[in-house]
Write a protein that binds this DNA or RNA. Structure first.
Lengths: 241, 241
DNA sequence: CGGCAGGTTGACTTGCTTCAACGACTGTGG
DNA sequence: CCACAGTCGTTGAAGCAAGTCAACCTGCCG
C-alpha cells in the first residue's frame, strides 16, 4: 500500500519497505512462491473502473497486484468517498478483513491481479511460520500506514498533503528526482485519497509547478524537479520560489 | 481500541469484540489466560500524563489496559498532534509494531496495564493457533478501525465527527442512552483525535446540548438524551431542535 | 470532426481556525 | 476550611484555507 508517512520522512526513506518482490536473498518461503508451487493463485484481469469487490461482501479472496492500480475506498450513504489506499504492483489487499470486506476495491486502470482464496492463505499461514510472519508483517504495515494517513488527514494542510502524496508515490515506485512519475489515478481519486476536492488538488499542483518544484508533462505524469522543496512543502514550510 | 466507525454502526454493535475478559464459554485459549498461567505478564501503573512508550523506541512490550485510558498519538515536528486511538479497559496496544513503536502512548488518566514482552506473545502465537487467531484478529480490527477513522477525518464535518465520537465511545463502553458516559480524556485530546481544534469541539458540544441531544453534567461526563438525533448528526443530517 | 469526460481556472462563500478574553473547576497550603 | 493559583474549558469576534458553483479548456475516442 501507499505509505503517506511524511511526519518522519526518514523512517520511510531508509527504513521500511513493504516486500515489493519475493525475497531475493535466503531460502525463505514467501506467499507468492509457495502459492505458485501449489497452484492456489489465479490470474485475473479487470478493466478500468471495474469493481473487484464491494464493501460488505463476503471476504472470500485476497489479491496481489501484478499490474495496474487499485483503489480501496469507503463510500458514505450520501456519496462522499474516502480512498483508504491505492494498491500498486507488488501490493497485497483483501487479506485485512475477517468475514466481510470493509472497503470497496476498484480498478483505477486495467489491472492484472493474482487472486487467492483466503482460506488457502490462512492454511499456509498455519503451516509455515515464514508465511505467518509475512502475513502479520503485512497487517502491521497496513495499520501503520493507515496511521500515517490519519496524521495527514487530521493535521496537514492541502499543500502538505499533495506534496506528501507525490513523495510517497515516488518513493514507493523507486523513482528518483528528475524521472517521470506516473499518476495512474485521476484527480478525483487523488482528492478522495487526500480528503480534498478536485479543485484544490488541481490548484495545488499548479502552484507547485509555478514554484518549479515539479513539472507536469501530461495529466498522468509528474516530474519532481526539486525534491528538497517538495519535502519542505510536505512538512509545512510555506515558501514559494 | 476505539472504533470510530459510524458508516456501519451495526458492525460494531453486534459483531466484533476484542476480548474484553477471558473467554467465558468454550475451552478456547486466550492470551490473558495463558499469559497469566505462565506468569509472563506484569501489572504496571502509570500516573496521569506519564509516557508509556515513545514513537521510535524499540518495541519491546505489548500492553493490555486494565483500568484508565491511554492515548496513542503521533506528534509532528512543529507540535501538531494527531491521536490515532484511545485504548480503554480491555484494549490491547503495542503489538501492532515491528521493531519500533510508531506512536507515543501516554496515560490520559491514572492507568493500570498488564505488560507483556512482545517476544513472549509471539512465542505463544507460534505455539497456539487460537492465540495466533486472536492476534491476527486484533491486527485486522485495528486496521479496520483506522480506516473508519480515515473516513471521519477525510470526509466528515465537525458535527459529524463529534457525534460519531460520542456514539462510538458509548458503544465501546456498552452505555445505553440515558446513562452517564464518562469522557476520561480532556477536550484537547478529543480535538486531536477528531482532527479539530479544542474550540470547535467545545462549541459543537454546546450546540448538541442546546439541541437537547445530550446533556453535560460535568466536563468528564455526557448523557445521551436523544440517540436518534445524535445518530442523525453523525451521518450528516443537519437538523437543529 | 464533433462530443464528452476529465481537468483547469476564476469568483464567491463558508466552516473551521485563530486570537483573545473570560469562567469554572481542582488541588494545595496557609 | 477557605483563599489562591493554575489548568482546563467556554464564548466571542475576525480571518482565512478550502469548498462550492460555474465557466471554460483540452485531449481522446468514436
Amino acid at each position: 500500500m501507499l505509505n503517506s508517512n511524511l511526519a518522519q520522512p526518514s523512517k520511510y526513506a531508509n527504513g521500511y519497505r513493504v516486500q515489493a518482490c519475493p525475497g531475493p536473498d535466503r531460502a525463505k518461503a514467501s506467499i507468492s512462491e509457495i502459492a505458485s508451487q501449489r497452484k492456489i493463485g489465479a490470474v485475473v484481469n479487470f478493466s478500468r473502473g471495474k469493481t473487484i469487490f464491494n464493501d460488505g461482501e463476503d471476504a472470500e479472496y485476497s489479491y496481489k497486484v501484478v499490474e495496474g492500480a487499485v483503489r480501496l475506498s469507503k463510500v458514505m450513504l450520501d456519496g462522499r468517498r474516502q480512498i483508504a489506499e491505492f494498491a500498486l504492483p507488488g501490493d497485497m489487499f483483501g487479506f485485512e478483513y475477517g468475514d466481510a470486506y470493509a472497503l470497496t476495491a476498484e480498478a483505477v486502470t486495467p489491472v492484472v491481479v493474482i487472486r487467492y482464496h483466503r482460506i488457502h492463505i490462512e492454511r499456509l499461514g498455519d503451516e509455515f511460520s515464514d508465511i505467518r510472519q509475512e502475513l502479520i508483517a503485512h497487517l502491521r504495515q497496513g495499520w501503520r500506514s493507515a496511521q500515517a494517513h490519519l496524521v495527514m488527514l487530521g493535521r496537514q494542510s492541502a499543500r502538505e498533503r499533495v506534496a506528501a502524496f507525490l513523495i510517497s508515490l515516488a518513493s514507493h515506485r523507486g523513482i528518483e528526482p528528475g524521472q517521470s512519475l506516473e499518476l495512474p489515478m485521476g484527480r478525483q481519486d487523488i482528492a478522495d485519497y487526500l480528503g480534498l476536492t478536485i479543485e484544490t488538488v488541481c490548484r495545488t499542483l499548479t502552484d507547485f509547478k509555478a514554484s518549479n518544484a515539479i513539472s507536469i508533462p501530461d495529466r498522468h505524469h509528474v516530474v519532481i524537479r526539486d525534491m528538497g522543496m517538495l519535502e519542505a512543502l510536505a512538512e509545512g514550510e510555506d515558501e514559494e520560489s
